[in-house]
Design a protein around this nucleic acid. Structure first.
Lengths: 144, 144
DNA sequence: ATAGTAGATAAGAAATATTCCTATTTAAGA
DNA sequence: TCTTAAATAGGAATATTTCTTATCTACTAT
């Protein structure tokens, strides 16, 4: 898969080793759907083809991939942290608190932020997530 | 303290008992500074005057106070969840990833959000936090 | 003021998520 | 192929939050 090769190239450029575990972790983010994965999600997804991978390895690599800029950490209102590829075009999320579904929304609040409000603060990153009920769950009347 | 009486009034209206533990928890949010407190912060703060309060009681009540709308849950990018009074005027935060300080910013992204982007999603709440370096930490050169 | 009761609490156990430790293994350069 | 710094597996440890249960208490109706 070509997309995977690009990511592997980035690993090499950063001077980190290209291990099969890392390739498996990266692969789990590829594919048609927009993937917002937790460490546990990845551990399970990989388990099929790589049953001996340790959860610690997943965590360690997610942290490393975040640090070198390949992944972005997401707070989707759950206890566990999720990750997505930074190469996806920038977006935020509409998160259904009922079914957990996260739709992407292509609106970024930083665009409309008056720099005076920020003053001397050096912005490095931001999070913006909208919580509520998706169309499906609204139709179900918001009941569980 | 008058502010505390108002909060106690809200508890009564919601039909929950006004226990000394609850009063102590609410009190820890009052005062001049803008308080963003974790369960542990509150447990420690209360310990002076109420040494036997259990951490579980703090967690249980924070959840309840959030559910009845007195507190709002915050994700400040740390592992633990923080809370603030919803009666504070609506705001978001500039969070320093170095020293952990959280300044309030009075700009809300929902104001500029085109409703078409949201379509049939029913918005219930949102989070918007900006991470980076505060003026002090920037001057220190971003070193620890 | 008193008693009854639903709801609240304390304390510790359990669950969940993440990180640490260390012996072993391996990717990649010489 | 050899070397070695970096990475891994597996289990232990930590941190945060929730659960369980026996006891207690704020509030309501007397």
């Amino acid at each position: 898969m070509q997309e995977l090769q690009l990511l592997i190239q980035q690993l090499k450029e950063k001077g980190v080793k290209v291990t099969p575990q890392r390739q498996a972790i990266l692969s789990s983010f590829l594919g048609p759907e927009n993937k917002h994965l937790s460490a546990e999600d990845i551990h399970l997804a990989i388990a099929k083809t790589y049953p001996t991978i340790s959860l610690d390895t997943v965590y360690r690599n997610l942290g490393m991939l975040r640090d070198i800029g390949i992944l972005r950490e997401l707070n989707l209102g759950e206890r566990r942290v999720h990750y997505e590829l930074t190469s996806n075009i920038h977006h935020h999320h509409l998160i259904c608190t009922q079914c957990g579904d996260a739709q992407e929304i292509h609106y970024c609040p930083l665009k409309f932020l008056d720099q005076d409000k920020v003053n001397k603060f050096k912005i490095l990153s931001h999070s913006f997530e909208i919580f509520g009920l998706c169309e499906k769950c609204t139709k179900k009347g918001g009941l569980l």
